[in-house]
Design a binder for these strands. Structure first.
Length: 487
RNA sequence: GGUCUCGUGGCCGAGCGGUUAGGCACCGGUCUGCAAAACCGUCUACUCCGGUUCGAAUCCGGACGAGACCUCCA
C-alpha cells in the first residue's frame, strides 16, 4: 500500500516528525502504559487510551499486523520523591477495607466496562505487573551484573552516576543530571541512595505492605518503572517500534525505562516514543482539588455537576478526535455542544450516502477527497484535518442529495467504503444507528403516513401535533423533497 | 528556581513562509403551509514589541500571559 510509505510520526525522542519505518515489514509492535488500578480511570486517562486506540486502529487500517501491548499496573508504586513508601493500591485497599487484589479486580472490571462504552479495541495483550515479578527480577539482576545498579539493605537502586558514563540519562526528557536537583530536596529516607537521582528497582518490604514478593535480595516490591521494561521486552522484544503513554510519564517513568533497557540490554527499547497530551476541564488540568474532576461514566450519564446534560460516548470520542493528540484539549460545555451538533451532521450525511441518486459523472474528485483522508492521518495522525475533510465529503453528499452535485455508482461505492473505514474503523465512531429499532420503525412509518395525510388535507393542526409530540419524545421529523424522514 | 510547551476570530480547534482549514454560534438568502433539516452566501483572527524576508499566524530575539514536568500522575 502506497499510503503506508508516507506515514509521519512525531517522535518525542528526536522532537521531530519522522517517516515511519517498521522494524519488521508489515508488523508493528506498540507498547502503551496502561492504568494503575487503585481507582476508577478518569476522563484524562480515557483521552490517552482513546488516542492510542485511534493510532492502533489506523495501523490496522493501513493493513499492518499490530501487536498492541497495554499493561495493567496492579502492584502499588512504591516510592515517592522522598523515598517513602507510597503504595497507591495498598492505600486504596486500606481505605476501602479490601485486599489489594480485590481493589485491582474491582477497578479492572470498571476499566473493561469503560473500554466497551467508549468503543476501544482490546489490545493484543494486557499483561499485569504482578504476573511478571520473575521477569522483573531477572532484568534487575542483569542491570546489577552490568554494573548499573547496587544493592543496599535488601533494596536495589539504579546507579545513575555509573550509567551516565556509558549512556545519556535524559535522552528523552532533555534533562541534564546536574540540573535535576539544584535545590536540595528533603533527603529523609534517601540515605540508602548513593546519588539523589538514583531510583528504586526493588524496594525492601515494610511490615505493613499488603503485597510482598520474594527476591534474591529478600522480600520486597518491584520499583515503578521496571514492570514496563519487563513486559514490553517479554512480549515485543528488546527493541520494538512504538512506545506510548501520557505526556506526564515522559519523566521520570519513560526516561527510567530507557535507562533500564540500556542498562540491561544495551539499547533503547523503542524506535518511536509517542506522548499524548493532557485533558483540561474549564481551563485547568483535571484535578480533584480544582473541583473540575469527573469520571467517563458520569459525563455519559449526565451525573456530573460540571455539565448540564449528558453526552454520548460517540460525541465525546468525536470531540476528542477534533483536537490533535499532542495538543491540550479543554472540556467545556460550549465546545461539547458544538461537537454534538457537528457529529450529528456528519453522521446524517453518512447515512444518506446509500440513498443517493447515481449519475454518469461525478461533479467532484472522489479520489482526491479520499486521498486527503490518508494525507491527514499520515501527518502524525492529524484527526482534526481528517474530520475537516470528512465534512467536505458530507457537504458533497448533501449537495448531491439536493440535486446540486453528481456522483457515479463506482465513486459512490468507493466513498462509502472509505468513509466507513475512517469514521468507523479509524476514528472508532459507531456508524450503526440506534434508531433501527425493529418495533419502532413500522410504528414510525404509520405515524408519518398519518401525518402526511393530514398535510395533504392542509390539516396543519394535526400535522403539527404529531410533529411536536414526536419532538417531545426526542424524535426529530425532517421534511425533505423526497419525503419525510426521522431520527 | 530549573526544563519544556503554548498564546489564532463569539466558542472549540487546524496551520510548520505566499493559497477559504473545519465544526458550532451569528447574520442574509433558497426551500417549506409554518418550522426543523438541508443548501448557498456574508462577517468576526492570529497577545504585544522589535528583527530576518519581496512576503511572517508561521522563522529569530525580547516582553507579557497560560499550562505541563522537575521521583503520585494518562
Amino acid at each position: 500500500m502506497e499510503n503506508r510509505r508516507n506515514l509521519q510520526i512525531y517522535n518525542s525522542l528526536s522532537g521531530k516528525k519522522e517517516t515511519f519505518e517498521p522494524l519488521h515489514i508489515d508488523h508493528v509492535g506498540m507498547y502503551v502504559c496502561g492504568p494503575t488500578l487503585y481507582s476508577e480511570p478518569h476522563m484524562g486517562n480515557m483521552r490517552t487510551f482513546i488516542n492510542f486506540d485511534m493510532i492502533y486502529r489506523y495501523f490496522l487500517h493501513l493493513g499492518y499486523k499490530v501487536k498492541y501491548v497495554r499493561n495493567i499496573t496492579d502492584a502499588g508504586h512504591i516510592t515517592n520523591s522522598a523515598g517513602l513508601e507510597v503504595d497507591s493500591i495498598g492505600k486504596a485497599a486500606r481505605r476501602e477495607q479490601m485486599q489489594s487484589l480485590e481493589i485491582v479486580y474491582k477497578y479492572n472490571v470498571k476499566f473493561q466496562e469503560l473500554q466497551r462504552l467508549y468503543n476501544l479495541l482490546p489490545p493484543s495483550i494486557e499483561p499485569t505487573a504482578t504476573g511478571h515479578i520473575q521477569e522483573q527480577i531477572e532484568i534487575i539482576e542483569q542491570i546489577i551484573e552490568n554494573g548499573y545498579a547496587y544493592v543496599v539493605n535488601g533494596s536495589v537502586y539504579f546507579d545513575v552516576q555509573q550509567y551516565i558514563k556509558d549512556f545519556n540519562y535524559g535522552i528523552l526528557s532533555g534533562r541534564k543530571v546536574d540540573e535535576l536537583d539544584n535545590e536540595t530536596r528533603a533527603l529523609n529516607a534517601q540515605d540508602e541512595k548513593r546519588f539523589f537521582a538514583d531510583f528504586a528497582l526493588w524496594k525492601k518490604a515494610n511490615p505493613d505492605d499488603m503485597q510482598i514478593w520474594r527476591s534474591p535480595w529478600g522480600n520486597g516490591n518491584p520499583g515503578w518503572h521496571i514492570e514496563c521494561t519487563a513486559m514490553s521486552t517479554k512480549y515485543l522484544g528488546k527493541h520494538f517500534d512504538i512506545h506510548g503513554g501520557g505526556m506526564d510519564l515522559k519523566f521520570p517513568h519513560h526516561e527510567d525505562e530507557i535507562a533500564q533497557s540500556c542498562g540491561s540490554m544495551g539499547c533503547n527499547p523503542a524506535k518511536y516514543w509517542m506522548h499524548a497530551n493532557m485533558l483540561n476541564v474549564n481551563g485547568q488540568k483535571m484535578s480533584k482539588s480544582f473541583g473540575n474532576y469527573f469520571l467517563p461514566k458520569e459525563i455519559i450519564e449526565g451525573s456530573t455537576e460540571l455539565f448540564d446534560k449528558p453526552y454520548s460516548p460517540d460525541v465525546l470520542r468525536f470531540f476528542m478526535m477534533q483536537a490533535h493528540y499532542r495538543s491540550n484539549l479543554d472540556f467545556t460545555q460550549d465546545a461539547l455542544n458544538a461537537s454534538e451538533k457537528g457529529y450529528s451532521r456528519l453522521m446524517e450525511a453518512f447515512k444518506l450516502i446509500d440513498k443517493l441518486n447515481i449519475n454518469d459523472s461525478s461533479s467532484f474528485d472522489v479520489n482526491e477527497l479520499v486521498n486527503s483522508f490518508y494525507q491527514a492521518m499520515n501527518d502524525d495522525f492529524n484527526t482534526p484535518i481528517l474530520i475537516a475533510n470528512l465534512f467536505e465529503a458530507a457537504k458533497n453528499i448533501y449537495l448531491i442529495n439536493d440535486g446540486k452535485a453528481t456522483i457515479t455508482a463506482s465513486d459512490r461505492d468507493f466513498l462509502i467504503q472509505e468513509m466507513n473505514g475512517f469514521i468507523s474503523n479509524v476514528l472508532g465512531l459507531q456508524t450503526s444507528s440506534e434508531n433501527n429499532d425493529s418495533k419502532l420503525a413500522p410504528v414510525m412509518d404509520l405515524v408519518l403516513d398519518l401525518r402526511q395525510q393530514a398535510r395533504s388535507n392542509k390539516d396543519w393542526t394535526t400535522s403539527d401535533k404529531i410533529r411536536d409530540g414526536l419532538a417531545a419524545a426526542g424524535i426529530v421529523v425532517k421534511d425533505g423533497k423526497e419525503g419525510t424522514t426521522w431520527s
